[in-house]
Amino acid sequence: MATKNNVVAFQYPRLTKENYDKWSLIMKTVLGAQGFWENVEKGYTEHDVAVMLNQSQKEASQNERKKDKNALMVIHQGLDDDMFKKVANATSSKQAWDTLQKFFEGVSRVKKVRLQNLRGEFKKLEMLDKKSISDYFGRVLNIVNQMKRLGESMQDCRVVEKILHSVNSDFNHVVVVIEELNKDLESMTIDELSGSLQAHEQ
């Protein structure tokens, strides 16, 4: 939180493409603390000007409208320029919130499908004959890095085991030696395995 003249200024969390779940939880708390979350959750509907309201109803309607605009303002405070464009046309806090939710649910589904495809590619990886170790490592790490960017936990030992079990037959005896010398493959790094296999290749 920033301070100015001894007054604490609250810093709203900034929404990014990677932190929607955390951002939405914090913003729900912030909106709730300010008494605005109910407006976001249930929505606010403008009354038809033709509908006759008594003074009490008019005041209640104006109060709800003000709270909704304040809620919308709070949501805007947590967005950068790119994210703001997605809700720029929203006229209520609920509309803005639902728009962001649908967008990130769609992004999440696409990520899940892409990650599932990459898992399949990783499982099917095999070293082609007449290809170098460095070429094969490049193929493996390209897929591994894509999986990591999508949130997959990829420990070195998982990649090491995959490579050892998928190099071509020219490296069979080297694989046996490596596995004998490294009973606990969890302690072997990808770089160490690459060095060992490339040393044999030369």
Rank of each mutant, 00 (worst) to 15 (best):
G138S: 12
Q55P: 04
V49Q: 14
K94P: 09
E201N: 12
D48T: 08
K17D: 15
D68V: 12
V110E: 09
L141I: 09
L115I: 00
S93K: 10
W37L: 13
M73H: 12
E192W: 00
S132W: 00
V49K: 15
Y12G: 09
V110Y: 05
L118R: 03
N168K: 05
K123H: 01
G78L: 07
N182W: 10
D156R: 05
S93F: 10
A60H: 00
L193C: 09
S194H: 13
S166C: 02
S56C: 07
S61Q: 14
E161D: 07
K94R: 15
Q155A: 15
Y20K: 06
Q155L: 14
S196P: 00
N172L: 11
N117W: 02
G120W: 04
K85V: 04
P13D: 06
S93G: 10
D170W: 01
V175R: 11
V160P: 05
M1H: 11
Q57Y: 02
D191M: 07
G195V: 14
K28C: 03
S134W: 00
T29K: 04
E59I: 13
K131V: 06
K66T: 06
D170N: 14
P13G: 08
W37M: 11
V177E: 12
Y20T: 06
E18M: 06
K28S: 03
V51Y: 02
D129W: 00
N89G: 11
R14E: 12
E18S: 12
A90P: 05
V87A: 10
S166H: 01
A33G: 11
K111G: 03
V110F: 06
E18P: 04
D135Y: 04
K162I: 05
D82W: 01
G35F: 14
A33E: 06
K66H: 05
R139W: 00
G78N: 06
M154E: 03
I26N: 02
F171C: 12
Q95I: 08
Q55M: 08
R14Q: 15
N89K: 15
K67Q: 09
K111C: 05
D21Q: 11
D170M: 08
N19Y: 03
R114D: 06
S194T: 09
D48K: 13
M83C: 09
V107K: 14
I133Y: 02
K162P: 01
S93A: 15
R149E: 14
E179I: 07
Y20N: 05
S132R: 12
W23E: 04
D170I: 02
K124W: 00
V160Q: 07
L141D: 05
Y44V: 08
E192A: 13
I26F: 07
T189W: 03
R114V: 02
K69Y: 09
M154N: 04
F104M: 07
R139H: 02
M127S: 02
E18F: 04
Q55T: 14
Y20L: 04
P13N: 08
V8H: 14
V49N: 13
L100I: 07
K162Q: 04
S132Q: 11
A71K: 13
M83R: 11
